[in-house]
Write a protein that binds this DNA or RNA. Sequence first.
DNA 1: ATCCGCATGTAACCCGTTACATGATTCT
DNA 2: AGAATCATGTAACGGGTTACATGCGGAT
Lengths: 192, 192
Amino acid sequence: MAGRQLTTFEHILLGQICLTPSSGYGLKRIFAATPMGLYQPSSGALYPALHRLEQRGLVQAQAPPGPDSHPARHRRVYEATPTGLAAHANWLRTPVDSATVARDLGLHLMRFAMMEYVFPPHEVLEFLQNLATALAQFTAQLEQYTAAVATDLGGRHPRLALDHGLAVYRASLRWAEHAIADLSAVVPAPSL
Amino acid sequence: MAGRQLTTFEHILLGQICLTPSSGYGLKRIFAATPMGLYQPSSGALYPALHRLEQRGLVQAQAPPGPDSHPARHRRVYEATPTGLAAHANWLRTPVDSATVARDLGLHLMRFAMMEYVFPPHEVLEFLQNLATALAQFTAQLEQYTAAVATDLGGRHPRLALDHGLAVYRASLRWAEHAIADLSAVVPAPSL
DNA sequence: ATCCGCATGTAACCCGTTACATGATTCT
DNA sequence: AGAATCATGTAACGGGTTACATGCGGAT
């Protein structure tokens, strides 16, 4: 039934629509307003992606509500179908892989931002815990690699570049731990 | 003369070849061995890219050196042409834009790693200084944005995600400052 | 003799970018 | 009425992924 799996972009669109029914243009504005629009989708990416989501039955354009004359012609507001909501929740539950956590960090943060009203607190904490574990593993591997090639690195720059990675992922790990503490404060604990 | 500008991927391939003449397979191995091959190029991306670089006259396959029987059939080792070296140096000199420094951080680190034997120390320091400035500007903007939307952020997660960005880019900035200090120690200063 | 790793290449497919086209709504 | 903005769409193009094809070289 399901064809190939969704693009990252499609997943993010679907997530936004799950959060708030939106039109294509509305989504564009959201991307533009978002902290420093790191990615500004083009029309040629946006509208075809929405059509694909619609064809899969993950979203549907709201039927023009105005029963009168010309019912909101041209404006297509999409909302998520039950299938779409399920697909989105499923995506949010994708495990964090320590081998690719560095490459996918931005994506994981996106997922974290989107799971606030979809997951119960304990599942959010579980996600953050997995993220922290993956980051810890990754940094450990990086340290190990650094130690292994300590001498025969061709020059100072590669070593400094490694240091950068280490510094950044450690900061990310500290953030994850802080976020866990912050969110745990509200939800004291699953009582056991 | 020059068609459209090179892909990021093409620039990185060119840079590697400038550093060390390599075959396609050799480049593949380099990517695989590099700290956790965040990106593993496929044959379908690698070989066509090398052909494009060759057609532009940026690299050229070494003539089979063995004058005897079958001169290293099948192995194509590329080396950079003067044009290629110039294009690479030019790419390394691309300014760091504070508006996109977050998106391009990985790329800038890649460039930093590659400029060790291409640039004189003072130019490397200049690059790091520009990077630091851009990161400082970017984090300042992020802080400003955070303050502006402090109240009407819909939930806790978006705020935490912003905190993550801030933490990471601050770590990057600290690294840049550290790298400047580290490299300046060797090159005391341009004497004025 | 065969199997595996080296090494290069190609074709189908998909998606994002660029650039353009088009119509509706609102402001002046 | 005319301009700017809202809003959706499409065509050409390019490049990356997947998957496959091919040939050479050394190992068992």
